[in-house]
Structure formats: C-alpha cells, structure tokens
C-alpha cells in the first residue's frame, strides 16, 4: 500500500506541474501575440490571404449549417408556442435565439472544428518538418508570419461569419414559417428587427471577436508547440479543436452573465 501511494504522488504532482507549465506557456504565447501585433513589419498580404482562407472556404459549411439550424429550431419551437396559440411569435423567438446565442455559438463551434484543426495541423506539420526553423534562419519572424496573421484573421472573420450565419438561419426560419403560417417576408423581418436590440447585436459581435481570437490562438499555440513526428501533428489538430470548443462554451457562459447584468441595469 505504502509503495502504491509513493508511486502515485509524483505522478499527480507531475501532472499538476505540467498543467501549470502549460498555462504559463499559453499566457506567454498570448502576451507575445500582443507584443508582436503592433510591431513592424506588418504582414498585410498574409493576413488578407488567411482571411480569405478562413472566411470564404468556411462559407459552404456555415451556410448549410445556419440554414438547417433556422429550419429545425423553428420546427421544434412551433408545438410549444401553438399550445398557447402564440405561433405568431415565432419570428421574435427565433431572431432572439439566433442573434443572441445560436448564431455565434454554432459558427464558432464549426470554425473551431474546421479552421482550428487546420491551423493546428498546418503549423504543427511546419514545425516537425523544420519549416519554422527554416523561416527563422532566413531572418524572418515565424511567429509574426504564422501566428499573428492567423490570429488576426480568425478574430476579424468569425464576427463576419456570425452575421452571415444569423442571416442564413433567419432565411431558413422564414421558409419554414412561410410554409406553415403563410407569413410574408416583410412581416417576418419587421418582427425580427423589432425583437432584437442594439445590445443583442453588439454583444453578439463582441463575443464573436473573442471566439475568433480563441480559435486562432489555441490552433496556433497547439501547432507551434506540437511534439516531433506525425503523431504530434494529429494530436495538435485534435487538441486545438477540443480546447477551443471547451473555451468557447465557457466564454459563452461568461458573456451571458455580463449581458444579463447590463440588461438588468
């Protein structure tokens, strides 16, 4: 027994040690981003290239998902509202749910899966094939070229994708409402815009910025610190997705509390 507990103790402390070392590393990584983002040279061309990759290449998946979310959520909400004879409130209900929570959350989760994993895998494979070292020895700052550009691109593009998802989800919802309640497009959207407030839109955009930053930083951090070998690249991509998603849920919860507090004021 004594031997067993003797074996367990260093294992536990090693894990704790690894956790806190990882946390400190991640903090230094974020701090370095903020130091480097304002210093020249600025890689504008690469930022635009990454924005294109992240934004345009995610559009088909985001469109499909947003559209389906709009249709399904409308369909699932109808029975509850019809019990109270309140199906006319469907546009209001859907718009509030989509703009406040579902749009940002669905977009961020899809981007974490698609963009986060691809950033983690790309930078991870550059690391294990010494491409990052090659950049460094040719007097180019790889952190600036690879990390700063990608984090900026995700931070700028996720809010734009969120607004697009909101719009597509509302179109999906309208098609469902129109087919069942015969509501016209103008009536639907008048109700939508009457229900959402300035605070809803600004809070949605602000938290999308945070989600985008999280996806970029986690993907880049995991790739940049991937261990040697192809297994390390796979692990970097996988953990980039898992950690991003976990952090996005926590951030969603925190933003909900903050917005509720503002609303109560």
């Amino acid at each position: 027994m004594a031997e067993e507990s003797h074996d367990r103790k260093p294992l536990l402390s090693k894990k704790i040690d690894k956790f806190f070392t990882g946390l400190a590393d991640a903090w230094n990584f974020v701090r370095r981003f903020f130091q480097e983002v304002f210093l020249p040279p600025y890689e504008f061309k690469e930022v635009i290239h990454q924005c294109y990759r992240i934004g345009v290449e995610s559009l088909p998946l985001i469109s499909l998902t947003g559209f389906i979310v709009g249709i399904v959520f409308t369909n699932q909400s109808r029975p509850s509202l019809s019990e109270f004879g309140a199906t006319s409130w469907l546009p209001s209900l859907i718009s509030i749910a989509v703009v406040r929570a579902m749009g940002p959350l669905v977009t961020a989760l899809i981007a974490a899966g698609k963009v986060g994993s691809s950033i983690g895998a790309e930078i991870g494979s550059m690391k294990v094939t010494e491409q990052i070292d090659a950049m460094e020895v040719s007097a180019t700052n790889p952190f600036k070229f690879l990390v700063v550009t990608r984090v900026l691109a995700t931070t700028f593009m996720i809010p734009i994708l969120v607004l697009y998802t909101d719009f597509v989800a509302l179109i999906g919802s309208f098609i469902n409402v129109n087919a069942n309640e015969l509501v016209s497009l103008s009536t639907f959207f008048v109700q939508v815009f009457e229900s959402i407030t300035f605070l809803d839109i600004t809070s949605s955009i602000l938290k999308s910025l945070v989600f985008g930053f999280t996806i970029g930083v986690v993907g880049c951090y995991k790739g940049y610190h991937s261990s040697k070998g192809t297994e390390g690249v796979g692990r970097a991509a996988n953990s980039a997705v898992v950690i991003s998603m976990f952090l996005i849920f926590i951030e969603e919860l925190l933003s909900l509390q903050i917005v509720n507090a503002i609303r109560a004021m």
Binding site: M126, T129, E130, Q131, D133, A134, M135, V137, S138, A139
Partner: peptide
C-alpha cells in the same frame, strides 16, 4: 549564413518560385 536542412524544409504551401522569393523580399 545559409542553412540547408536535412529534409530540405521547403514551405510546402508555396511554389518553388515563392520559396525562393520568401527570404529575398523580406530581407
């Protein structure tokens, strides 16, 4: 100092021209 890596370490998302251009235009 020129460093030729064991596995060449060419940037695999860039063409040969872009690989050669990369250090030049930056420095």
């Amino acid at each position: 100092i020129g460093f030729s890596f064991q596995n060449s370490a060419l940037y695999d998302s860039m063409t040969v021209r872009e690989n050669l251009e990369f250090p030049l235009v930056r420095n």
